[in-house]
Computed example of a mutant assay.
Amino acid sequence: MPRKPATAAKSTKIRAEDELAEAVRRPTGPLRPVRDDINLGERLRTLRKARGLSIEQVANSVGVTKSFLSRFERDAVSASVATLLKVCDAIGVRPGTLFDPPATNLVRAGEGRPISLGGEGMHEYLIAGVGNEHLMALLSVIEPGGGSGPEPYKLNAAVDFVHLKEGELDMVVDGELYSMKAGDTLTFPPTLAHTWRNPSQTQPAVAVWVIAPPI
């Protein structure tokens, strides 16, 4: 596709080597704020240590610096979707297993569980699927200029579709650009390299993603 709100003192993006961006998350509309207990980096650090892997081993496997990985594990910086997937692969964990399933099958408006699957300028909410072997559904609020990051990535899943509820979204799948407007739906095999971003300079985009089977 999900981050802690950035404070005013940290509003400037942090860059470190190949890719770094401090998470800047300003929810749009009635969605609930991101909860402080959704600490993706901390969970990845716990899993890394449980598998007996050092920061240096994982950083070398992913192709990032130890400094970046250390800050990522402290939830001080965000990574692109591609980098997050590489970290999960290096540790040996499916990204979807990092998040607890919803307590109920009914997720009311504004009650999706905040999660982070990487990217920049993003709020993402789990609305269905973790703990379900068939699919995962996410609601994404993408700030102007935000998206998955510059590096294309792939998912080990059979199908991915995105329905754009509001705004604009540029999807690049296997080198082909799909410029989406509100109401458009794109279905594609996520095993193809893809990236996406909100091309608007002023308006957020709101999209629903369904991935089957869940990542």
Rank of each mutant, 00 (worst) to 15 (best):
R45F: 10
G29I: 11
G92F: 00
P152Y: 09
V58Q: 04
G110Y: 03
L47T: 11
L47D: 09
P5R: 06
A193S: 14
P190W: 02
P30H: 08
G29Q: 10
L117A: 05
T28I: 14
L85W: 05
V34T: 11
K4D: 13
V34I: 09
G110W: 01
L20K: 06
E42I: 10
A207V: 03
G147Y: 00
A182M: 06
W209F: 12
S67G: 14
A158R: 15
K86V: 02
P101K: 13
A205Y: 06
M136W: 01
Y125H: 07
N60A: 15
A82K: 12
G121W: 03
R32M: 11
L169V: 06
A50Y: 00
Q57V: 05
F99Q: 04
V107W: 03
L20Q: 09
W209C: 01
T97W: 02
T97G: 00
R45G: 01
R48I: 04
I142Q: 06
H123P: 04
S140D: 12
R45P: 02
S200H: 02
P150G: 08
C88A: 13
F188M: 07
P30M: 06
M1D: 09
L192I: 03
V58D: 04
S67L: 03
L53E: 01
S140V: 03
M136V: 11
K49G: 01
R113N: 10
L135V: 11
